[in-house]
């Protein structure tokens, strides 16, 4: 399966994308995250606070309990960022 990482999730894993073949028992997003975290401290840091991480499976928003299979494209990223009109971000809209 193809994994994609965006924004600070990417900076913590240290890579933008990779292709992995986890064991057969890794068949949900949650199980995949557990498997990834065991691979190194960068992954553990990226997934330390799951409330701050969003998931897409095959380019559709998904929950952590969603089933995954070989060939899927799974992306991890923070909530998308806006900004208030009065202060917020530099995106002025």
């Amino acid at each position: 399966m193809k994994l994609l990482y965006f924004a600070w999730v990417r900076t913590r894993t240290g890579i933008a994308e990779e292709t992995v073949s986890p064991p057969a028992g890794v068949n949900t997003v949650s199980a995949l995250i557990g498997w990834l975290c065991a691979r190194g401290p960068g992954y553990a840091a990226a997934f330390a606070d799951l409330k701050a991480v969003r998931v897409a499976v095959n380019q559709e928003h998904a929950g952590f309990d969603v089933a995954i299979k070989p060939g899927d494209e799974i992306a991890f990223f923070p909530p998308v960022t806006g900004g208030r009109d009065d202060k917020g971000s530099a995106a002025g809209f």
């Binding site: 965006f6 971000s89 530099a90």
Partner: peptide
Amino acid sequence: WLKTKAPFWKLE
């Protein structure tokens, strides 16, 4: 919608 839901991340 674009402000809140579009998948863009901003690095300032």
